[in-house]
């Protein structure tokens, strides 16, 4: 589904290379986790894949279902099925959560040549999805993420994911700033979306999120590349010994 080959990326503004040859393949139906110390390039990878400005691809490729996504606008990537759950979801005062979600869904459908969803159907759809994430009607009415707690913001990200139904979901440190209960709620939301046609790339510092979202494959990222790949046991090893051992091992 997602295929990244020898991806080299630098910051546009300064001569600083962040990704130094990332190779990664995520198959449909699988959950891949990327772990790594601060500054290893995990978040940059998520931004480059979703099309944020400020990065320059020096070499390599990234394709989604065979399509080169690096040449696409962010909205085109979304329509192609890519979704990034933000580490810091953005507050947008004055724009209602529902208005935003409906604009997003209909824009994606339009881009795919599908018909728009009626207001009534949309309301039904969102209410149903929101219920399982314990998002109440009041939260849906409020402006996007404004006045939301950390947990509410992350739940709102998962709600967007549930409504937009992307095929490739990237979760960027979704566990940061969450207490155990909130994390469990978010993880349940993600698990409910697991599907043979959908893949996940879960970026995290800590193993604890992976207790709730069981990964199929775990990658360790350091200094801009994937340095080790293994099964779920790799995450446990990080939890126990930290990154130092693994980094020493490959050095």
């Amino acid at each position: 589904m997602l295929e990244i080959k020898n991806l080299n990326v630098k910051l546009e503004e300064e001569d600083k290379q962040i990704l130094k040859g990332v190779d990664l393949t995520v198959e449909a139906g699988k959950v891949h986790a990327i772990m790594g110390p601060n500054g290893s390039g995990k978040s940059t990878l998520s931004y480059v894949l979703s099309g944020r400005d400020g990065y320059e691809v020096m070499d390599g490729s990234a394709t989604l279902d065979g399509e080169d996504i690096l040449e696409m606008e962010p909205e085109e990537r979304a329509a192609a099925g890519l979704f990034l759950a933000f580490q810091y979801p953005v507050e947008i005062p004055g724009v209602g959560n529902m208005t935003f979600l409906r604009s997003a869904l209909n824009a994606q459908r339009k881009a795919r040549g599908e018909s728009e969803v009626s207001a009534g159907d949309f309301l039904k759809l969102v209410r149903e999805k929101a219920k399982t994430l314990k998002i109440d009607a009041e939260m849906l009415k409020r402006p996007v993420n404004v006045g939301f707690s950390g947990g509410e913001k992350k739940r709102n990200e998962i709600l967007q994911m549930a409504v937009l139904e992307p095929t490739m979901c990237i979760l960027d440190e979704t566990d940061s700033g969450l207490d155990v209960d909130a994390m469990k709620l978010v993880a349940d939301g993600v698990n409910a979306l697991r599907d043979p046609r959908r893949a996940f790339l879960v970026i995290t510092h800590y193993q604890r999120l992976l207790d709730h979202i069981q990964p199929d494959v775990v990658h360790i990222m350091a200094d801009g590349r994937i340095v080790k790949t293994g099964g779920p046991e790799l995450a446990l090893e990080v939890e126990k010994n930290g990154y130092a051992d693994i980094l020493a091992e490959i050095a």
Binding site: S50, P74, A78, A107
Partner: peptide, 30 residues
């Protein structure tokens, strides 16, 4: 226009012009 907010909206599939319009309305909301 706040580039981070613009990217957030676009990453959800909202086209750039539409996203800009939403952010203008957001700006005027107060």
């Amino acid at each position: 226009i706040d580039e981070t907010a613009l990217f957030y909206l676009r990453s959800r599939g909202v086209e750039k012009e539409e996203a800009t319009a939403l952010l203008v309305l957001s700006f005027l909301a107060d």
